[in-house]
């Protein structure tokens, strides 16, 4: 009888300890925010993709990110080993923009946005073909869409001199607007009026 009691006690203790650790893990899983993890994975992929074609020497590139507090674009410099050809450079710059600011500035496009293809024509028009994901999680607004578009256009113009204008495509098609406000039907030429004056 006493042996049975001892066995039962041991089993109960094992179950209780197991349940405690299970609940602890469950709590962590339940309350841990899921989206940052997914975003981090997406960002890592982008970072790898952005650095993959690097063949040239590392140089400082200037990327423009939205500063919503000012309603303007703020420059951020970072070292990047830029590829030799323009098309790969454009990809690197755009992916670095999607990867996000390292100084706490606003995001340009959602981390899940995919750049499907890039074409650069002889007259300096860069065609950027984004996936539909670029729009799915994009917080719409006239200001946010303007800043997103010009952060890409101005960043490309300053880092890839051959880019004179940019045409945005979504899933290979010309889109009416980015997310309901800013027209994407025409080419975009760089506009420095949205860049914050240097302090």
């Amino acid at each position: 009888m006493s042996r049975r009691v001892a066995l039962f006690s041991i089993l109960t203790a094992v179950v209780l300890v197991g349940a405690f650790f299970y609940l602890l893990r469950l709590k962590r899983l339940t309350f841990a925010p899921q989206s940052p993890k997914a975003e981090a994975t997406a960002r890592t992929k982008l970072r790898e993709a952005a650095l993959e074609p690097a063949s040239g020497p590392t140089q400082l590139v200037t990327l423009y990110f939205p500063s919503y507090a000012e309603g303007l674009l703020r420059p951020e410099t970072r070292p990047l080993a830029l590829a030799a050809n323009d098309t790969d450079r454009i990809k690197q710059i755009v992916l670095a923009l999607i990867e996000g600011s390292q100084q706490g500035l606003g995001s340009v496009l959602p981390p899940t946005a995919t750049l499907r293809a890039v074409f650069l024509t002889a007259d300096g028009t860069a065609f950027l073909d984004f996936s539909q994901d670029a729009l799915t999680n994009f917080p719409p607004g006239i200001e946010s869409e303007s800043l997103a578009v010009y952060s890409i256009v101005d960043s490309l113009a300053v880092n890839v001199p051959d880019v004179k204008r940019v045409q945005f495509l979504i899933q290979g098609q010309q889109a009416h607007t980015l997310a309901g406000h800013i027209s994407l039907s025409g080419y975009f030429v760089p506009d420095s009026s949205l860049i914050a004056p240097s302090q």
Binding site: G106, P140, S144, F188
Partner: peptide, 23 residues
């Protein structure tokens, strides 16, 4: 009239007129 993402400051108001994306 529109309302959209304008960062964390609230309320904010911006006014826009049209300019084409390229000449």
């Amino acid at each position: 009239f529109h309302a959209g993402n304008m960062g964390l400051a609230i309320p904010r108001i911006n006014v826009y007129s049209y300019a084409p994306s390229s000449p």
